[in-house]
Design a protein around this nucleic acid. Structure first.
Lengths: 193, 193
DNA sequence: GTAATTTCTTAATGTACATTATTTTTCTCT
DNA sequence: AGAGAAAAATAATGTACATTAAGAAATTAC
C-alpha cells in the first residue's frame, strides 16, 4: 500500500514494530502535485520535509543574475526539503517544485520534533540518514571544484540514471552549473566520440 | 582541563552526567602534531574521527593533475575526518594534515560504534551535529556553483576570520578552487577598492 | 645567520565556459 | 490537429580564470 515505500526506506536503518509504524504514519500528510506546482518559495518558512513516492521534484535557488541553480532532484524514495529553514524555522532560500506530476508524503515540523520524543529510535534513523547525506554532499562539493563540466555531466548520469531522458536539458544544465547552450555543445561533442 | 573544550562542544546538544562524561573521555585518545604531520592518506582506512583542540588541520585531495583541493580547515573546536572512509571502513580519498603545530583528540571507530550502545544519547548528538554540518555543506555547494572567486574569498573570510593571516595564500587558494596566482591578483584588486 | 626552499607577485598568453542572437525542434494547451 | 510557447541546436563574440615564466620576498633548516 501507500506507505510501503517509506516504511521500507526507514527499515534500512531502524526496526519499527506495528504500533510504531502506525504512529509514524499518523504523523505524515500526503499531497498530489501537478507538474510545475511549487511547494516552497524563498522567504517562506519550510513547514515540511518531503518524501517523494512518485514523480520528481527539484530543489533550487535563483541568484541575483536570475540564473537557476538546482541543488538536487528528489525522485521516488528520496527525501528533500530546505533543511536549514525546516530546522531553524527561518526564511527559506530554496524553491521546491514538481517537474513531473508527483506524489509526496509530508512530515510537518511539529511532528518531526514530536517524533524524537515518541520514538527515540528516530534519532538513530536521522543520525544515519544525515551521515550518508553528508557523505554524498561532501563528494559533490569536491566534484564541483575538481571536475570540468563534461565530467560533472557523467557523474550526473551515474547518480540519476533514470533522469537522462526524463527531464529537460535546461534542468540538467542548471544542476551542473552550466548554460543549456554549453550542455548542448558538450552532448554533441560526446556523441561524436 | 584538557577535556573541557570537547565536553562543552557536546553539551551544546545533549547533557551528560559525570559518569557519562568519564566514560566518554575514556573512549578518546589524544595526539600532538608537528606542522606538516599527516594523519591520513588516500588509500588508508580512516580509523579515527578528529576533534581539534589547538592549531589547524586541512582535509584535502590531490586530483589527477596534481592540483590540491581543500575540503575544509579544522581549527580549534571543530570536528573533522574522512567521514565516508570512517563510516564504511573503505579506503580514504582525503589527506588530513596539520598546517600548524596542533593538538587533537581522536575517537577511534570501534569506540564510536560502542558509544551508541553505551550512551544512546549520542545518537541525538550526532543527529544534530550531522544535521548542522549538512546545512553548512549544502550552503557551500551552492556558493561554489553560484559565486565567483572574489565572492567565495569573502565567504571564506567570513567563515574562518581567524585564518586570514594565519595560513598561506596557497592554502586559501586551494580551498577556494583557484590558483595562488589568481588569488594574488584578486587580493591586489580588492585592496585597491 | 646564511643558504636553500617555498611562497608571493606580476605579466603574457591560453582555454573553458558565458552571453547574445538566430533558427529549428519539441512540448503544451485547447 | 494546429497555434503558441518552451526547449534545443548552432555560431559568433566575450570573460573569468588557468598556465607558464621569472623575479622578489618570506620561511625553513642546518
Amino acid at each position: 500500500m501507500k506507505y510501503e515505500l517509506i516504511l521500507k526506506n526507514i527499515s534500512r536503518f531502524i526496526d519499527l514494530n506495528q504500533e510504531e509504524q502506525d504512529l509514524y504514519i499518523s504523523l505524515l500528510k500526503e499531497k498530489t502535485l501537478k507538474k510545475k506546482e511549487i511547494l516552497l518559495r524563498p522567504g517562506e518558512i519550510a513547514r515540511y520535509d518531503y518524501f517523494t513516492t512518485k514523480g520528481c521534484l527539484k530543489i533550487y535557488t535563483i541568484d541575483e543574475n536570475g540564473t537557476e541553480h538546482i541543488a538536487m532532484f528528489a525522485i521516488k524514495d528520496w527525501w528533500s526539503g530546505d533543511l536549514a529553514s525546516f530546522i531553524t524555522q527561518q526564511p527559506a532560500k530554496y524553491f521546491i517544485q514538481a517537474i513531473e506530476d508527483s506524489e509526496v508524503l509530508l512530515m510537518p515540523k511539529e511532528n518531526y520534533d514530536l517524533l524524537f520524543e515518541k520514538i527515540p529510535k528516530f534519532e538513530r534513523f536521522y543520525r544515519i540518514l544525515y551521515q550518508r547525506s553528508l557523505v554524498s554532499h561532501i563528494q559533490r562539493s569536491d566534484q564541483n571544484i575538481s571536475l570540468n563540466a563534461e565530467d560533472r555531466y557523467r557523474e550526473f548520469l551515474k547518480k540519476y540514471p533514470s533522469l537522462r531522458n526524463r527531464i529537460s536539458q535546461k534542468n540538467i544544465a542548471a544542476y551542473l552549473g552550466v548554460t543549456p547552450e554549453f550542455l548542448s555543445l558538450l552532448r554533441k561533442k560526446m556523441t561524436l566520440l
